[in-house]
């Protein structure tokens, strides 16, 4: 986890430096704000990972001489099929189209989105595929 955190921190430090230089040279706000955002994107998760890397159990994927037995066992649960991403995608597209052709597609889109939300929650509870 250390390397992961450091990579993000390095990006954060660089963006922070550029942000400062840019602000002093140009006094231009939009660019500075965006650079600030990029700085935070490096620092916030990077610092979290680094902090976390000290308190978690060492992981076999960080250990160059880990044997495959070290990593044996369950990785995670993965859904194999689910129709809800499709439903949510259609819903999002309909909400988007409402920005072009007027509001009438938006309610349908929201209903689909809501259905997808419920669907995903039920699916995860049941722990089964569709």
């Amino acid at each position: 986890m250390k390397v992961e955190g450091t990579v993000l921190l390095v990006i954060g430090v660089f963006m922070g430096a550029v942000c400062a230089i840019y602000w002093f040279l140009s006094n231009e706000t939009s660019g500075t704000m965006m650079l600030l955002g990029a700085t935070l994107l490096g620092f916030v998760p990077g610092a979290y990972y680094l902090w976390w890397s000290r308190r978690m159990k060492p992981r076999p994927e960080d250990n160059p001489s880990a044997s495959r037995a070290d990593g044996a066992g369950v990785v995670a649960a993965f859904p194999s099929t689910s129709v809800w991403p499709f439903v949510l995608g259609v819903g999002a597209a309909l909400v988007g189209l409402a920005l072009v052709f007027g509001l009438w597609t938006a309610p349908i889109g929201f209903v689909l989105g809501f259905a997808a939300l419920l669907g995903v929650i039920r699916e995860s509870r049941r722990g089964g595929a569709v």
Binding site: A72, G73, V74, V75, A77, S80, E123
Partner: peptide, 10 residues
Amino acid sequence: MTIAARPALA
């Protein structure tokens, strides 16, 4: 939902 385990040694 299927549980994925690490593949075996062989």
